[in-house]
Amino acid sequence: MQQTISSGSMTYNTLGKSGLLVSKLSLGAWVSFDDQIGLDTAYAIMKRAYELGCNLFDNAESYASGKAEVMMGQAFHRGLKDGVWTREDVVLTTKLFGGARGDQNTLNSKGCSRKHIVEGIEASLKRMDLEYVDVVFCHRPDPLTPIEETVRAMNHVIDRGYAYYWGTSEWSAQEITEACRVADRNGLIRPLCEQPQYNIFHRHRVEIEYEPLYREFGLGTTIWSPLAWGILSGKYSGKNIPEGSRLSLEKYKWLKDTAFSEREWQIEKTDQLKPIAQELGCSVAQLAIAWCAANPNVSTVITGATRLEQLEENFKAVSIVPKLTPEVMSRIDKIAQTKPDYDPEKKMACRVRGIA
Score class of each variant (00 low, 15 high):
I5M: 05
S6E: 12
G8C: 01
M10D: 08
S18L: 06
S23V: 00
L27H: 02
V31Y: 12
D35I: 07
I37E: 04
T41V: 09
R48A: 09
A49Q: 01
E51H: 02
E61V: 01
Y63T: 02
A68F: 04
H77R: 15
K81Y: 10
G83A: 04
V84Q: 11
V91R: 04
T93A: 09
T93M: 09
K95A: 06
G98M: 13
A100R: 08
L107T: 08
R127T: 01
L130F: 00
H139Q: 11
P143C: 06
P146V: 08
R152W: 07
A163S: 15
S169A: 06
W171M: 01
Q174Y: 13
Q174E: 14
T177V: 11
A179D: 04
A179K: 05
V182Y: 13
E194T: 12
N199W: 10
R205P: 03
E209A: 14
E209K: 03
L213W: 03
P226G: 03
G230T: 10
N240T: 14
N240L: 11
G244V: 05
G244H: 15
E250P: 05
K251Y: 08
Y252G: 11
K253P: 01
S261V: 01
S261Y: 02
R263N: 14
R263S: 11
Q272D: 10
A277L: 12
E279D: 15
V284F: 07
Q286C: 08
A290M: 05
C292A: 12
C292Q: 11
A293L: 10
A294R: 10
A294Y: 00
A294L: 07
N297K: 10
I302C: 11
A305T: 06
T306P: 04
Q310L: 09
E313L: 12
V321N: 05
S330H: 14
S330Y: 06
R331F: 10
I332N: 09
Q337E: 15
M348V: 11
M348Q: 13
C350S: 14
R353K: 02
I355A: 07
